[in-house]
């Protein structure tokens, strides 16, 4: 019960790991590209959670800075990924990731 009542860094790390696993499962098993991209967002969020938890542990702000950079990257990734998705949908009329296996148009 002691573990439940006192929230330590490990709690946040376990939460981050669980979120990371969910994201990995989503990326590996889903066929819908949009949901695969969302699972990638889940993975990035898990990483962010760890970074901020560690920055709390060591009492600095460096982890938070990295979290901000990761969020920026997530924005860039989402923009390009969804752009590719739209181009793909225009050519193949599907958003099924299993059909993106031609390596050419």
């Amino acid at each position: 019960m002691e573990v439940m009542l006192h929230i330590t860094t490990l709690h946040y790390l376990v939460l981050g790991a669980a979120l990371f696993l969910l994201g990995v499962i989503g990326v590996l098993t889903r066929r819908n590209v949009v949901i695969v991209l969302m699972s990638i967002e889940l993975i990035l969020n898990a990483v962010n959670l760890n970074l901020v938890a560690f920055s709390r542990l060591w009492g600095g702000q460096h982890g938070q800075i990295f979290a901000i950079f990761v969020i920026t990257d997530a924005a860039a990734e989402a923009a390009v990924g969804l752009g590719i998705l739209i181009a793909f949908f225009r050519n193949k009329e599907t958003i099924n990731i299993d059909e993106v296996n031609l390596l050419k148009w």
Binding site: R31, N32, L82, I86, F89, T94, I95, I97
Partner: peptide, 23 residues
């Protein structure tokens, strides 16, 4: 952005398909 793209692509077809791949 995600919601916009979901609306732009036609999801009716993908709803009828199998949702999980064979791996």
């Amino acid at each position: 952005l995600f919601l916009f793209v979901i609306m732009l692509v036609n999801i009716d077809r993908s709803l009828k398909e199998k949702q999980f791949n064979s791996q």
